[in-house]
């Protein structure tokens, strides 16, 4: 296996892993608020989070490029404050990936929280437990399959991302060239053997992840 192949797969794993970790940190509080709190703009927030599921990736990629541009406020602020340019950089595709994979993390977590009987939460409150303790000790352990599904879906979706990455990151080796981009690039160059190698690896990883998700459906809860 050549170095390019390893580097591309490593970068793909790094992007998917980082996106999943960031989304786990953001996902729990966001899913908790959407599952249990009622507020006026909730339907709008839910619609906004779900947008990547219906929006062409190129649309999101285009708007992100506009926002990243130093000619606009956010891009200028990033450049002046942190000396950071997001367009055509790893950080840029990471942010795009986080936004684009948001519904794949939020929706399983939100559904998992909603499926837990309300009486569990309320009993914990009457026993003097705070919302945080209730979340950690009662809710999370009773939604393990939903958490695994959320992680697996997010990771798998990140690995397969193409449209947003090509728009925001282009095809820069060791920076933005992930496996899905490499497949397209190799096919364009008529290098079908390399394209096949990348495709096979993505195929196997996706199959394994989906097998994990479907095996979770058979287990209502994991006890510990």
């Amino acid at each position: 296996m050549n170095k390019d192949f390893i580097d591309t797969l490593t970068l793909t794993g790094k992007l998917a892993g980082s996106t999943t970790l960031i989304l786990l940190a953001i996902g729990f509080p966001l899913a908790y608020i959407l599952a249990y709190k009622r507020f006026f703009i909730k339907p709008f927030i839910e619609a906004l989070i779900s947008m990547p599921m219906v929006l062409p990736p190129t649309v999101l990629g285009f708007y992100l490029l506009v926002i990243y541009s130093p000619q606009n406020a956010f891009g200028r602020w990033l450049e002046q404050t942190f000396d950071l340019r997001l367009a055509f950089s790893f950080e840029g595709i990471l942010l795009a990936s986080v936004i684009f994979s948001l519904p794949f993390m939020i929706q399983p977590l939100q559904n998992g929280l909603i499926s837990i009987p309300k009486s569990y939460r309320e009993t914990a409150y009457t026993l003097g437990k705070s919302e945080f303790t209730t979340f950690i000790r009662v809710l999370m352990p009773n939604m393990i399959p939903s958490i695994i599904t959320a992680i697996a879906m997010t990771f798998a979706h990140c690995i397969g991302e193409f449209g947003v990455i090509i728009m925001v990151g282009g095809n820069i080796p060791n920076e933005t060239r992930v496996a899905s981009i490499a497949i397209y690039d190799e096919v364009q160059a008529m290098n079908f053997q390399a394209a096949n190698q990348y495709s096979f690896v993505l195929f196997i990883i996706s199959l394994l992840i989906l097998t994990v998700i479907f095996s979770m459906n058979g287990k209502k809860k994991i006890l510990f």
Binding site: S119, Y120, T123, Y125, T126, K129, S130, R137, P141, L223
Partner: peptide, 20 residues
């Protein structure tokens, strides 16, 4: 006062035992 501050024992119809 919140349920936590009232310290009331509440037993639901479904008992709400924590499965984990």
């Amino acid at each position: 006062l919140s349920p936590q501050q009232r310290n009331v024992g509440y037993m639901f119809q479904d008992y709400a035992l924590f499965p984990n």
